[in-house]
Simulated assay, not measured.
Amino acid sequence: METTSPVERLLRGVALTLVVVFFMFPIVWIFLMSFQTNETILRIPPSVVFSPTLENYAALITGKLQTASGTLDIAFMRNLGNSVLLSVASVAVALLLGVPAAYAFARHKFKGSEDIAFTLLSFRFAPPLLVLLPLTQYFQWLGLSNTYFGLIWIYQLICLPLILWIVRGYFEDISADVEYAYRIAGHSWFSTFRKIALPLAGPGIAAAGLLAFIFAWNNFVFALVLASADKQPVTVGALAFVTASGIQYGQIAAAIVLSITPTLALALYAQRYLVEGLSLGAVKG
């Protein structure tokens, strides 16, 4: 049995500590900034010693932002609610469409199946600016501009390719013999899919849904152009903190803390499924 010396353990501990500090420092610094005023944040040299304040969070919750030129009305909490609505609804629609499609691509090989699957994946490769102008015109013709339905439609197109390819890899990793044995007992394709394939692919579906939620939550360009202020998510609503009288760094930091909390909580809750989904489903697909 191979053992490590105390020096090796010490070096590994130091290396691990450096890695953690490197990646966690920006988050910790933003968190500290959220409890400071602009004057404290901009002082030189910066200091971690300060008198904390909840004014930044109070401004976000009440919708009243104090600036040098007066009080500015903001709708951050409504934007935060819009982000939750758009992300959850788009992921739900993408899962409803993508999981059966992934099962079909994994179990039923037909002419052109790989081309169709790759075409769907290519939607992730296309830069948003490439399709933004035609989408804007289509939305105007169809009356979908500045509607939740239109934004959810676009968001699920962002989530669908990711879910399709990750979940497809999980279905391919499941032995087809288990499903064949269940079908021989007289059960239908749909019953096999619902009672055998779905439970076995549960971790992959959870990982794909989590990743899709993060992608939808972080989207910026489509909501900026296709929706007005009352329908925009928090990523666009954060622009309100850049005012003519200056940039409200404290409120921006507090907004970042509040906006990353849902995705961070989901990632911590489902991190085991996330790692497994990335290491299996994404590779096999």
Rank of each mutant, 00 (worst) to 15 (best):
Q232S: 08
V225S: 06
D115H: 11
L60N: 03
Y249K: 02
F23L: 13
L95E: 02
R43N: 09
W153I: 13
L80M: 15
I252Y: 03
L42K: 14
F139Y: 12
D177W: 02
K111H: 12
S83T: 07
V178I: 13
R43A: 10
L135C: 00
S259R: 00
L268I: 12
L198D: 02
T263L: 04
A229P: 13
P46R: 13
Y103C: 04
G202Y: 05
L266G: 14
A238N: 10
V178P: 00
T263E: 06
I74S: 06
Q248W: 03
A229G: 05
P6E: 08
A229Q: 14
I205E: 07
E8A: 15
L132N: 00
F171H: 01
G112C: 08
F105D: 01
L86P: 04
Q36M: 15
L142K: 05
L132D: 00
V99S: 08
L85K: 14
L142C: 04
T243A: 02
A68N: 11
W141D: 13
F125T: 05
V21I: 14
L129P: 05
T243D: 10
I27C: 01
L32D: 07
D115T: 15
E179K: 01
F22R: 01
A68H: 06
G143Y: 07
V257D: 10
D73T: 13
V234C: 04
P46F: 11
G202M: 14
I205T: 05
G63Y: 06
T4Y: 14
Q140A: 10
A185G: 04
L135K: 00
V225F: 12
H187M: 01
F25I: 05
Q66V: 13
K111R: 15
S51H: 12
G285R: 04
L120S: 00
G63R: 03
T263Q: 05
Y180M: 07
T3V: 07
L280Q: 08
Y103S: 11
L142M: 11
S5M: 09
M24W: 09
I252K: 02
E8R: 15
I74M: 00
T243K: 10
A240P: 05
A265D: 00
M77P: 03
T263I: 13
F31T: 08
L72C: 06
P134V: 04
F125D: 00
V225C: 09
F139M: 08
L11N: 04
L97M: 15
A267C: 13
A223P: 08
E114C: 06
E55R: 13
